[in-house]
Design a protein around this nucleic acid. Structure first.
Lengths: 323, 323
DNA sequence: CTGTTAGCGCGTTCAG
DNA sequence: CTGAACGCGCTAACAG
């Protein structure tokens, strides 16, 4: 590896001059600039970002913490974040938190490594992130009252769209299928506002809302569908739950979407070029990812912008609703 | 951020001593060790990995390059790699190569950043990796004759298992559905040995093997199935192709698996806890990932082990074959 | 067993 | 406009 020193020698200038060229400083004599550039080219010199980072306290690296990358929602999210980051000449350190204990470890690791900031989907306690003083953006979870920057989808609007869509498509007895955990959670609005919209419109609604973890959700769904044979429109907490409902329905001889229409949430696909797996409320992940990146960089640069973004999703028609 | 100097002062020892404590050196007086540890605790001191990396030329970071993380196969792979890496106290830099040009950029970036090594699934030219001199492990692609470390699945064995399984399950007219590109490619063995096994067994086989990119694979499959109505067993180049075959078959009123049995390749799921989407030849990604990590670390440490691993997959029964 | 010191590769004064 | 010198936080070699 060639170093700045080598370049300086070859170009017949001093270290400082080379540094200035690298950093595109003003007022360098075109001639010297040329000499240096030639030397850089010749030696195939590449500045060492870490030596540099040590001085500047900047590493141009952002950490992304997700529960697991092996999941289409997080996979898509990570994809967009990385694309955006790389466009801006940043790198992405990826962490599967896979539980609260590993998250804490990661924070420590990230401090050591001086990543410039963290974007995280975390469902565990956030205090450690705050106290660490590292620029931090929360994704998909809001922290009411706390001064934490976040980007999340507007679950209220999404739930309302789901309800209205099912009503438009002629359903009369509605169901909600989901699971939740104890933490105060933005996703609870999916049930809350779906229920409210249906009730306000004067329709009947039945709820299946288990507490996580749910070992045998399908069995629960089975009983739920049997107990409520008139249900003809279901909104689920996410697309995976919708897939479960489909399987159970098929098993019970209930035809989707003829007898039962289903709308999920998230908008997952198996891969970018594939179809959506169910009719769904799509979270605009590309837009959200870009916003999250913009936010974290603004925070790093101390440009204070709006720090909280709630972005609405939109309905995507799949094969689980009537045309 | 506290530094080593602060710790040394507070503990009343010198920098070197603190360094020794951090690095768990032998032969430190228990008393001093204690003093230092207390000071570290008190100051909440965390060593700066980058300053350290500058000395050691080690960053404890591995880059993983995949075409796109938004894909269940690469998602699972990245998941396992990260898990293993994190277990060994390494971090993972994730890169979506999304085409050859970005790959080259990444190599440069990675040199700058002194990642200790690269694990890559790359279908473009490999020369740049080699010339860069960075420890490198190729995944899912072998380089015959070249001294490149790789981990890949044994496509020959997989294809043979697929053929034998379909034969066992009573098929008599076989089909292969796939696509390939011009690069010399290990995955071509999937077709090659499937075909050979079927022919050797004395059965009839029909082939649909397009050149990538294939804009309308489903239409091609449709024509293929119509032209070959007696096909009752199909092996596809990967699980996505199998999904396409299923959709077309359903559309044509062909029942899967009653009329047509299908075996894919890869063993993708939508997420860890989900089912396999089709009967398939599963690539043992967890094992392969661990091996890839082991390999890259061995190369970094100059421990010369076997540098080429071909790991056989195994048959997984899904819903596209008879019991 | 511990303190001292010389860099690692770079950015940034501060003089010229 | 440019060069020399210092220091970022740390490790390693060498003294003591």
């Amino acid at each position: 590896m060639a170093t700045m020193k080598d370049v300086a020698e070859l170009a017949g200038v001093s270290l400082g001059t080379v540094s200035r060229v690298i950093n595109k400083a003003q007022g360098i004599k075109p001639q010297t600039l040329d000499k240096v550039n030639v030397a850089i080219e010749k030696l195939n010199y590449i500045p060492d970002q870490y030596a540099r980072g040590m001085k500047l306290n900047r590493t141009n690296t952002i950490a992304l913490i997700v529960p697991t990358i092996w999941h289409p929602f997080f996979g898509e999210f990570a994809y967009h974040v990385e694309q955006e980051l790389s466009r801006l000449d940043y790198k992405m350190l990826l962490c599967n938190s896979a539980g609260p204990e590993k998250e804490a470890e990661y924070i420590k690791m990230l401090q050591q490594n001086k990543v410039d900031g963290i974007i995280a989907i975390t469902y565990s306690s956030i205090e450690e992130f705050l106290s660490s003083g590292i620029p931090f953006v929360s994704f998909d979870r809001v922290f009411p009252g706390m001064d934490i920057a976040y980007v999340a989808s507007d679950n209220k609007v999404g739930a309302e769209i789901a309800a209205k869509t099912l009503i438009e498509k002629g359903c009369t007895h509605f169901g909600f299928v989901g699971a939740h955990n104890e933490t105060e959670n933005e996703t609870k609005k999916r049930r809350q506002y779906f229920e409210k919209t249906i009730v306000d419109a004067g329709y009947k609604i039945s709820i299946l809302d288990e507490v996580e973890p749910v070992p045998n959700l399908k069995e629960k769904i089975r009983k739920f569908l049997i107990a409520n044979p008139t249900i003809d429109g279901i909104f689920t907490i996410n697309d995976f739950a919708a897939l479960d409902v489909i399987e159970v329905a098929e098993d019970l001889g209930i035809k989707v979407p003829e007898d039962l229409q289903i709308i999920g949430y998230d908008g997952i696909k198996m891969a970018m070029e594939r179809q959506y797996v169910v009719s769904t409320i799509k979270q605009p992940l590309e837009e959200m990812s870009k916003k999250a990146v913009e936010l974290i960089l603004d925070i790093i640069d101390d440009k204070e912008h709006t720090r909280q973004y709630l972005i609405p999703g939109y309905y995507v028609e799949g094969k689980t609703t009537k045309k």
